[in-house]
Nucleic acid binder design. Sequence first.
DNA 1: AACGAAACCTGCGCGC
DNA 2: TGCGCGCAGGTTTCGT
Length: 268
Amino acid sequence: MPELPEVETVKTVLKRRIQGLKIHDIDVYYEKMMDEDKRQILIGQTIHDLKRYGKYIVFILDSCVLISHLRMEGRYFFKEPNEPVLKHEHIVFQLSDGLSLRYHDTRKFGTFEIRDLDHYLTVPPLNQLAKEPFDIDPNAFYKTLKHKHKAIKTALLDQSIIAGIGNIYADEILFACKIHPLRMTDQIKKSEANQIVQEGIRILNHAILAGGTTIRTYVSELGVSGRFQLQLMVHQREGEACYVCGTTILREVINGRSSFYCKTCQKR
DNA sequence: AACGAAACCTGCGCGC
DNA sequence: TGCGCGCAGGTTTCGT
């Protein structure tokens, strides 16, 4: 479900609420998501900090880290412990402030991994992660693209090439850069690689800001979903008129994912 | 190295 | 109302 901006919003809200709290107990309702061994390791540990790497949320604990990935539909909610556990609430963390933090995931795609505090960045999954648009060196990014031969849309979704971009923002970034999603990476010019990074930063920042303004609403009513409304230029707009030139927006499956683009604005 | 298909899951909207 | 299909903001795995 979420891309970098949504995950950033979720992390920020979680951090504000649970930093310094202790995990008193954990109820697991879907074993595949967290087995008994993991549960035992986590119980009793204090949550010292929360960080985000790409689309991963990392809980910094006493002796290890808990790495959470929301995949398509993961969400966190805060509830009173006595409230009934819903169908899609798979993990319930009982915290030392008396509240319960609940992990809700309709499709059960989300993952929880435990890693050593000392080198969690040097082992999977985080060691596979490239830098985010905010941190990546545009020159290095350009060189990476030049040495590969795949559709740029596919490359933007590859977290080992650039981290944090998902299907929606990949389409939006390519539209902003006037680049056709099927253009091959080795055909991307240096100036265009630079533009992808700059537009990536702009669009993600805009989305994070939009998420930030609605944090209060989400916490009180929907839990921490990190979702928000952002004006989309092409994504999910098949058959509608391009806001720039009026051409009908097309949809094409690339790398197994729906891709939306304007064939007039975006050069192949 | 790159691509496609399938897998992991569930729910929703659509056409018939 | 029910059924089958396609689709969903992610990632991994396996075969070609």
